[in-house]
Computed example of a mutant assay.
Amino acid sequence: MYDLLDPKNDFVFKRIFGSEENKDILLAFLNRTFLEAGEPPLTEIILMNPYTDKDSPRDKQSIFDIQARTVEGKLINIEMQLFNKYDNEKRTLYYWSKQYSSQLEKGQAYSKLRKCVTINILNFSILPNERYHSVFHLREDHSGIPFIDDMEIHIMELSKLGLQPIPNEGGLLNWLLFLKSEDTSNWEVLKMNEPHLGKAMTALEYLSQDAEARRLYEMRQKALHDEASMLEGAREEGSFKKAVEIARKMLAKGKDIEEIVEFSGLTVEEIERLKAH
């Protein structure tokens, strides 16, 4: 008998949701997500960074988020976060802005910019509300009119699912309960509610029986735990000083700023100042 791998591990999550053969799973998940935001369903999705064998925990350059584009050009980024890296709101805006601004090549008009959607699935809580799925847009405070529809941020907090009853119909909650995977006894009900979840469950079971996939999973799980411990240690031991030490070491090794921001917790501006001295 084998233990199921944790689908919240970003390596496993991308294997299930971010591969070409499972694109229908991703599409079904996205459509349930957008339905809750009052948006029309998608008919097709294009994976911009599909999973390949090069996406290995052994390669520090591997990206385990999922980047996709709709046929209309809307960009979607989905990231699974197992541990709290702190400053999540600023980190989310930073990566959203990178995705948005990177669309334009030199000399292109701003009209070429397309909507960017960020979906962060968190195994912890950051928002002071009871909702497990929160959706953010740019709107005017008093009238609620949209400034522009180009920004959309979804925060899904799996830690807030504890009091949710098992649904008796389709919807996003079924997908999030699968991802939380604390109780597999409800899987048959979830699968009846959301047929595409059956394929996701089969993919997870297959991966869990694959010796090489399990080895890579354990490697990634260790890296995630080490990263979480390093970040927690940085906060407990005079957090800023420790973060600066981490950033200096990473700069000396030629790491890029995005990776240093993620591992050290420092801002881009703080890292740029370290580079200048």
Rank of each mutant, 00 (worst) to 15 (best):
Y2P: 04
L5D: 04
D6S: 13
D10Q: 13
V12F: 06
V12E: 07
G18Y: 11
S19V: 03
K23S: 13
D24Y: 00
L26G: 11
L27D: 03
L30Q: 03
T33S: 10
F34Q: 02
E36W: 03
I46C: 00
D55N: 15
F64W: 02
I66S: 02
Q67Y: 01
Q67D: 02
A68M: 03
T70E: 02
E72D: 13
N77Q: 03
E79K: 09
L82W: 08
N84L: 13
D87N: 15
N88D: 01
E89C: 01
K90Q: 10
Y95N: 07
S97W: 06
Q103L: 14
Y110G: 12
K112D: 04
L113K: 14
L113M: 14
C116D: 01
L122T: 08
I126P: 09
H133L: 04
H133R: 03
S134N: 11
G144H: 12
I148K: 01
I153K: 00
S159I: 12
K160S: 11
G162E: 15
N168R: 13
G170N: 08
N174V: 04
W175K: 07
L176P: 05
L177S: 03
L179C: 01
K180F: 03
S181W: 05
D183H: 08
D183A: 07
S185Y: 01
V189Q: 14
G198P: 01
L204R: 08
Y206E: 15
S208W: 10
R215L: 11
E218R: 07
R220D: 06
K222S: 14
A223N: 14
D226H: 07
L231E: 05
G233E: 11
A234C: 08
E236N: 07
E237P: 00
S239Q: 00
S239L: 00
G254V: 04
K255L: 12
S264G: 06
T267R: 10
E272C: 02
K275S: 08
